[in-house]
Design a protein around this nucleic acid. Structure first.
Lengths: 344, 344
DNA sequence: CTGTTAGCGCTTTCAA
DNA sequence: TTGAAAGCGCTAACAG
């Protein structure tokens, strides 16, 4: 049976010890006004009787919850769960809890989730917006209530909030530069939707690297996938390799897409990295356990979670500072078997 | 600059409309005692002036947070994030938010996480315990405060709580039976630690299937991995295949381990499924994108999250019912290329 | 049908 | 160094 003993309150302690509630309250936080002796007395009593403050009351009084909300497009996703892991770690370190929700890349769901969090009173929000989010009026509601918002990874510039993002341009650039350094000359790119910033940044990095090194470029070498699935990777690989002008290396927006490409290439008997070089993006576990192991770009998702959380908590403590800084996290090239032509 | 306009309160509305706070409060929830007209008046005012209740106050008053805590060993993990996804979905549907934390399979971290949640006042806790958790006194603290706990997946029988688990025994049994049906006769098993229940259940299912079909068995065919890593899969595959009595099929505790096995087998030129049959467990995305695609056992993690959350919310609404039921979720065989000998 | 009142547990002036 | 008292915003018992 449940042990529903009433929780000890300050009033209880005061009554037992013959002192007032306010003294108990102050003693517990070792207020300088209170006599050493009283402090010891109260603290001891609290200790032995297992006093735990009623945080509902404290939070109400202070108008603060020590909860942070976090919304991502997809929870079952290597990168996002890594970010969440970092956010939890940092939030907990600073005495906050993390409320997690997901939008499934649907605006309606994102609005529901953000309302639920606003209501349930988080002190601030971390969000990576859905593909459908443009204006973000539901996020303005937070700002209007004086609750800070920090955007990360998938962001919109419409909202005046700080942002933490991956340097997608640079990551893509160095991925493609690596292919070039390995001797690949005809490099294709399977990208994501045009209206998604990360995808455009990566594509821009790809194009810049090609251009900087005076490599052949071909509009047909850039394929746009909509769902970022392995099947799309498979299908586009087929298109690319069967065209009259097949590339000898492919840079994919994501490891998952690269896996699809890999599947096609292996099926058709291409040798990787000898016949075709292949590099992904994100460094999912997927890329480490494939054969051959996939070169990729590490995004440091954990760090992103930590940084975004840090920024948010700073703003929570400092309400009226308008902070619009953008933190850009550097990527890191992870070279594995699928691109090491020089050593193959 | 932040728009820090004070939030509208019931008192404000009452003052403006010349009625009392309690009438406003009741009107807003359409209490039967209140005149239709008053209700309309108040609701309209609230609507146009954008009244939002102060949930901190409501929660304090009701001694309820509408938050649920959830702790898993690892967040960056396909199965657990799938469970969380289900938990969020169900929690939100019922008006709850989900506080997420992880133990990293370290008891100390689990205690910290559960304390943080208890303090920040969740109404109940969903937990999949760490490998190090035995007694679970930190979880008893919840029960002592009358807050229900529901265990899922990794559980301990020491705690008197309801549980939601996967039918590991049955899942393993049907995986092995499938191998047998396909014609494999010498089946090895790479399992997890002896002191982890799921792992023992799966092993028991494996042994029973072997026994029921009078197949050869060999103690050397059962390998125990400690970290459930792909590298262990690789190493044990090597051991198994190089032994004097090599198996012709391997059932792995997890897809990740199976991927390691796959890597070894492909390296050595074994044909899968012709030379060796291979089946994993969990149906991670990994298993769908490998070549050959991996047969596996779907655990229905999303459903587990939904069921556990449902159970918990039911108990939150019904404090003093002692509920110790165990929900067992049926697995589902996912047959792909790595075992379909009959069609190969 | 509506208003008055008390109180949830805690913090914080203000006064002694 | 301590206590009394007010009040955070809301709900609900009670009284009219």
């Amino acid at each position: 049976m449940m042990n529903d003993k009433k929780k000890l309150t300050l009033k209880d302690i005061g009554r037992e010890l013959g002192i007032s509630v306010s003294t108990v309250s102050r003693a517990l936080k070792a207020h300088p006004d209170i006599a050493e002796e009283t402090i010891k007395l109260v603290k001891e009593y609290a200790e032995t009787h297992n006093y735990v403050p009623n945080f509902l009351a404290v939070n109400f009084r202070k108008n603060k919850t020590f909860n942070i909300g976090l919304i991502v497009p997809e929870l079952v996703h290597h990168f996002f769960s890594t970010v969440i892991s970092g956010a939890i770690s940092e939030a907990n370190r600073q005495g906050y809890n993390l409320l997690v929700s997901q939008s499934n890349d649907i605006l309606k769901d994102e609005i529901l989730a953000s309302r639920a969090m606003l209501n349930s009173s988080v002190d601030g929000l971390l969000i990576s917006i859905s593909n459908e989010t443009v204006e973000g009026d539901h996020l303005r509601e937070f700002l209007n209530e004086g609750k800070p918002v920090v955007q990360f990874d998938k962001i919109t510039d419409y909202l005046p909030t700080p942002k933490v993002i991956v340097d997608d341009f640079d990551g893509a650039y160095s991925a493609v530069k690596h292919l070039i350094d390995e001797g690949y000359t005809r490099i294709a790119h399977i990208r994501g939707r045009e209206d998604v910033k990360n995808s455009s940044e990566r594509c821009a990095g790809y194009l810049k690297a090609i251009q900087d090194h005076n490599l052949e470029s071909d509009p047909d070498w850039v394929k746009v996938c909509r769902k970022i699935s392995d099947q799309e990777g498979y299908d586009f690989a087929k298109e690319l390799m069967e065209s009259k002008n097949p590339p000898n290396a492919i840079f994919c927006i994501t490891d998952l897409v690269a896996l699809g490409v890999l599947r096609y290439l292996k099926e058709k008997g291409y040798h990787i990295p000898k016949d075709v070089g292949l590099i992904g993006f994100s460094n999912w576990m997927l890329s480490r356990v494939s054969t051959p192991q996939l070169s990729t770009v590490e995004q440091h998702g954990f760090q992103m979670g930590v940084d975004a959380t840090n920024l948010l908590i700073e703003m929570i403590g400092n309400h009226d500072v308008e902070n619009l800084k953008t933190v850009e996290i550097k990527t890191e090239l992870v070279i594995r078997e699928s691109t090491t032509l020089s050593k193959a």
